[in-house]
């Protein structure tokens, strides 16, 4: 079924200068392979297109049922120089969680 990433995964951002990392954690580790197929770095780059990432790297952590995305140059210079309200990019996890994903089955949910 099609649903928002927010329904099956957690995300947390961290910043270092102008670089953002977004950890995505499967709430149910069984969803890891499906999300691994769908959450490609290209798709994540597309979700952040307005911020023109110069590079997006995905690190895979199957044992933790998690991914770490590292996006370069998306924080308008970072917390020291951004003119925006969220120079740390703390709210940007929820930009990613808005993506639509296709999940076969959710435990405990009637389809």
């Amino acid at each position: 079924m099609q649903l928002r990433l927010h329904e099956v995964a957690n995300a947390r951002t961290g910043d270092k200068g102008n670089r953002l990392n977004i950890a995505v954690v499967c709430r149910d580790p069984a969803h890891y392979p499906e999300l691994a197929r769908q959450l490609t770095p290209e798709r994540v780059a597309q979700a952040f297109i307005a911020r023109r990432p110069s590079k997006v790297v995905r690190y895979e952590l199957p044992k933790l049922a998690a991914f770490n995305f590292v996006l370069d140059d998306v924080l308008e210079g970072g917390v020291n120089s951004s003119l925006g309200l969220d120079g740390h990019g703390k709210s940007l996890s929820f930009l990613l969680l808005d993506l639509t994903v296709d999940i076969a089955e959710i435990k405990g949910r009637k389809t």
Binding site: R12, G14, D15, N21, A23, Y59, L61, K63, A65
Partner: peptide, 26 residues
């Protein structure tokens, strides 16, 4: 797990002064 990956870039190489930490097999 969320905090383990907080402000991490390459999970196989987190650099601190004393060591390089690899959390890929945690």
């Amino acid at each position: 797990v969320e905090q383990l990956l907080y402000e991490i870039h390459d999970p196989a190489s987190y650099l601190v002064p004393d060591v390089v930490l690899d959390i890929t097999d945690v």
